[in-house]
Write a protein that binds this DNA or RNA. Sequence first.
DNA 1: TCGAACATGTAAAAGGTTACATGATTAC
DNA 2: GTAATCATGTAACCTTTTACATGTTCGA
Lengths: 183, 183
Amino acid sequence: MDVRTLCLGALCITDATGYDIKKMFESAFNHFQHASYGSIYPALRQLEESGLVSSHEEPGTKHPARKVFSVTDEGHQSFIEALVSTPPAEQLRSDFLVLLFFAHLLPTEVLAHKLAEAEAAYQENLSYLESIAGKCEHTAGVQFTIDLGIRTLRGKLAFLRERRDHLLANHKLIPMQWEDRGS
Amino acid sequence: MDVRTLCLGALCITDATGYDIKKMFESAFNHFQHASYGSIYPALRQLEESGLVSSHEEPGTKHPARKVFSVTDEGHQSFIEALVSTPPAEQLRSDFLVLLFFAHLLPTEVLAHKLAEAEAAYQENLSYLESIAGKCEHTAGVQFTIDLGIRTLRGKLAFLRERRDHLLANHKLIPMQWEDRGS
DNA sequence: TCGAACATGTAAAAGGTTACATGATTAC
DNA sequence: GTAATCATGTAACCTTTTACATGTTCGA
């Protein structure tokens, strides 16, 4: 699912400016999609060109003026179609797992440090999700995504804490020549 | 971590052709990185140009000839440096969670179908990881990535099965006008 | 008054996918 | 003989990030 479609989705929740939508990507969408201004603003322009959203500038002394976008009926319909036709895929991109995969090439102290960093990152995500879990009213679906995230992060943290010491205790740096690549 | 660096990593495990490396992305690397031929072959060329890998064509009648790449000492060193300087970040991109987030816009049957598809996908990934978990000898780090993957997928599957019925039972499609967008 | 947050946007570059083009070898 | 697998590579396109450029408003 691309940023363009997610922006359309965001506007199906509430009218918003590009700035507001960035905020949504940083909070509600954070644990399953990322996006920067450089993709959001062009996406909004394209959506407007295709008639899926409309905008009106809010009057006022502000500079630049807030440009508030609203989804059109066609946009709403189009978003639902996008949802229906998108397979429920999931893709992880994890530098942490790459690191572990090649742990035998790293000094023990570096590995230990990376594990600690990863744990802190998991913990931070978990704390955020826990903080919003009970806070405001969510639709059942949104609550489901939050709870699934919490469950997953708790599982990962538990695993990390259980196995980290064992991994580090048995860790041996395998030097460059570990592999026999004669010729 | 980009495809170029991962290819270098792959060659730190064993000499390989572009085709072999694609296979690694589809198996061992599958649960944390993806890559297509269109990124692998150019990456290999760049790596060779920078002197981080070398190649030799295997003689034989084959057409096209196998072009086997090996990491150079410099390449090995460079990969280790990349590992050390890469923060252990993790990023999920999940169309499944997007779907759940907007579940209130979907008919119940569609939602049910998506949940079933997601469950099947999780199950397939889990079965694959379980199948390789005990099969061959892995380094401790590789075993760690596999076990973490198994733990995570089991957690997600358990959550899905626990909560799916409740989600579907309480599901109400909120029609287009659910939001008051007067004006 | 000073820094954080609000607010919009562009341009270049990076990174990757998809589709194409080609052909040999192997297992059934 | 025919389908799957092995094997290499390119070109066009798509998406997204990074870095830049600009200026306001609000709270401490």
